[in-house]
């Protein structure tokens, strides 16, 4: 275990921020370019995970355990969100026989 924690010593904090920003942007792009509702949900999971990683990095950087507890709460929230979201998707599929979000364009107005 000592070797592993030695390995991370000296990674600049900016590189963690950049990694999380890139993955968050990939999640945003996924929401924008896909029409499959489930893939959009997966992109939202990617964004949540990018934020989780950044919170953990800041927590380790500051030596404060509150950040990691917050990540734990975000994970509980993500589990609840996925359960409700997938139930909604199943219901939409049952009513429209498709999970194309463009079918749901009545929700715009």
């Amino acid at each position: 275990m000592e070797n592993i924690t030695q390995a991370i010593q000296g990674i600049p904090l900016n590189h963690y921020i950049l990694l999380s920003a890139v993955i968050f942007a990939i999640g945003v792009m996924g929401v924008l370019i896909r029409r499959n509702a489930i893939v959009i949900f997966m992109s939202i999971e990617l964004m949540l995970n990018a934020v989780n990683l950044l919170l953990t990095a800041f927590s380790a950087y500051r030596g404060d355990a509150a950040g990691q507890v917050f990540v734990f709460f975000i994970m509980a929230l993500a589990a609840a969100e996925v359960a409700v979201g997938l139930a909604i998707i199943v219901m939409v599929y049952r009513n429209t026989n498709s999970i194309d979000i463009n079918v749901l364009n009545k929700l715009k107005w």
Partner: peptide
Amino acid sequence: VKALNVSNPVVLTNPGLG
């Protein structure tokens, strides 16, 4: 992030944190 211009390395001050 570039404008922030702080780039201290992540040092595990408290290894038993997580």
